[in-house]
Design a protein around this nucleic acid. Structure first.
Length: 189
DNA sequence: GCCAACGTTGGC
DNA sequence: GCCAACGTTGGC
C-alpha cells in the first residue's frame, strides 16, 4: 500500500472565488506593473527611524500571523513594489515613510523559534505557514500624513487600511498612493 | 458545521 | 484603559 503523504498546505486551499474587493491586489500583473502597499508598526516597537538606522536600511518583516496579511505579502508583493510605513498606536498615527520590497516572501524563521513570541508550533519548516518579505527604507515623507487626515480625504475613503480594520498589511491603490504623496508635500492646515 | 469563548489589534 | 472588530479555537 502506498504511503499517503499529508498534502502540502499550499495545495490544500484553492483561492476563494470572488473573495472580496481586495482580489485585485493578488491578481496577475501586467508586464512591468508596480503595486503599492501599507504596513503598520508600533513605533515603540519598531519605528521608521529604527529602520533607517539599520545597516542597509533593510529589515525582514517578520511576525505577521494573519492569513490575509500573509497572502498580501506572499502572493501580492513583488520586488520593487512600494510600501508605506505607518505608525500605529501612537499619537498621532500616521504614514511616515516609504519602503520598497527588497526581497519577496520567504519563510518567517521566527515561527520556528520556540523562544520567540511569534513561535507557531504548527508551522512546519518543510511547509511553512508564515512568510516575511524584506523591506528597504527609501525615504521619509516630507511630513507625516495622519490617520485623521486620511479619514477626512474623500479620495482615500475606500482605502483598505480604513476598511479592513487592524490588518497589518494592506494594499494601496495607485491613485491612493499618489494622493498621499501629494498630501505629504503640502503643509498642514 | 455552528457558535460561544477567547485573544489580539489598534483607535479613541 | 476601554472596547469594537475580527480572527481563531474548540466543544458539541
Amino acid at each position: 500500500m502506498p504511503t499517503r503523504k499529508k498534502p502540502l498546505k499550499s495545495a490544500q486551499r484553492k483561492p476563494a472565488a470572488g473573495a472580496g474587493p481586495w482580489d485585485a491586489a493578488l491578481s496577475p500583473r501586467r508586464a512591468g506593473e508596480k503595486r503599492y502597499w501599507l504596513v503598520k508598526s508600533e513605533p515603540d516597537t519598531f519605528s521608521f527611524d529604527a529602520l533607517l538606522s539599520l545597516p542597509g536600511q533593510t529589515t525582514s518583516w517578520d511576525g505577521v500571523r494573519n492569513f490575509v496579511a500573509r497572502n498580501f505579502m506572499r502572493v501580492g508583493m513583488r520586488k520593487g513594489d512600494r510600501v508605506f510605513f505607518y505608525h500605529s498606536s501612537t499619537n498621532p498615527q500616521a504614514i511616515v515613510g516609504i519602503c520598497e520590497v527588497a526581497k519577496e516572501a520567504h519563510p518567517d524563521s521566527t515561527a520556528f523559534d520556540a523562544k520567540h513570541h511569534g513561535y507557531d508550533p504548527r508551522s512546519d519548516p518543510a511547509d511553512p505557514t508564515w512568510f516575511m518579505v524584506d523591506l528597504h527604507a527609501i525615504e521619509r515623507l516630507p511630513r507625516p500624513v495622519t490617520l485623521a487626515e486620511i479619514k477626512r480625504t474623500p479620495a482615500l475613503a475606500a482605502m483598505a487600511m480604513l476598511r479592513i480594520g487592524r490588518l497589518s498589511v494592506t494594499p494601496v491603490a495607485p491613485a491612493e498612493w499618489d494622493t498621499i504623496i501629494a498630501l505629504s508635500r503640502t503643509t498642514t492646515a
